[in-house]
Amino acid sequence: MTIPPVASGFALPPLTSPVRTLGAHTIDFSARIAVMAIVNRTPDSFFDRGRTFALDQAIDAALAATSAGADLVDIGGVKFAPGAEVSAADELDRVLPVVEGVAAQSDVVISIDTFRPEVAEACIGAGASVVNDTTGLQNPALAELAASTGATLVITHSLARPRTAYVAPRYDDVVQSVVAFLRERVDLAMSLGLDETQIIIDPGHDLNKNTRHSLEITRRFDEIARIGLPAIAAVSNKDFVGEALGAGRDDRVDGSLAAATACALLGARIVRMHDVARSVQAMRMTETILGLREPQHLRHNMTDENA
Rank of each mutant, 00 (worst) to 15 (best):
P4V: 11
A7Q: 11
S8W: 02
P14W: 10
L15C: 11
T16D: 12
S17K: 15
T21C: 15
T21Q: 15
I27F: 12
D28I: 12
D28A: 11
F29V: 08
S30N: 14
I33K: 01
I33S: 01
M36N: 08
R41K: 09
R41F: 06
T42N: 11
D44C: 13
D48W: 03
D48A: 14
T52C: 07
D56T: 10
A58M: 06
I59T: 02
I59W: 01
A61M: 00
A61E: 01
A65R: 05
G69S: 11
D74M: 03
I75F: 02
G77H: 00
V78Y: 02
F80A: 13
A81D: 14
V86P: 02
V86E: 07
E91G: 08
E91S: 08
L92P: 02
R94P: 04
R94Q: 05
R94D: 05
V95W: 02
V99F: 03
V99M: 05
V99H: 03
G101N: 13
A103D: 10
D107G: 08
D107E: 14
V108P: 08
V109A: 12
D113L: 01
R116H: 09
A122C: 03
C123N: 04
G125Q: 01
A126N: 08
G127L: 07
V131H: 00
L137V: 02
A141D: 14
A141N: 07
G150T: 05
G150S: 10
T152L: 04
V154R: 05
H157N: 10
H157W: 07
S158T: 02
A160T: 07
R163M: 07
A165T: 10
Y166K: 02
R170N: 11
Y171A: 06
D172V: 10
D172K: 09
Q176A: 15
S177T: 06
L182M: 03
R183A: 07
R185K: 15
R185M: 03
A189R: 00
S191W: 02
G193E: 04
L194Y: 02
D195I: 06
D195K: 13
D195E: 13
E196T: 15
Q198G: 09
I199W: 00
I201W: 00
D206P: 08
D206G: 09
R212G: 09
H213F: 12
H213Y: 14
R219F: 08
R220K: 10
R220P: 04
E223W: 13
R226S: 09
I227M: 08
A231C: 09
A233Y: 05
A234W: 02
N237Y: 14
D239P: 06
D239M: 09
E243V: 05
G246D: 08
A247R: 06
G248L: 06
R252L: 09
R252A: 07
D254T: 11
G255K: 00
G255R: 00
G255D: 04
S256M: 06
A260T: 06
T261F: 04
C263V: 04
C263R: 00
A264L: 01
R269D: 06
I270R: 01
I270N: 01
V271W: 02
M273N: 00
H274S: 01
D275W: 09
R278S: 08
V280D: 03
A282M: 07
R284L: 13
T286C: 15
E287G: 14
I289F: 05
I289K: 07
G291H: 03
L292G: 14
H297S: 14
R299Q: 08
E305R: 14
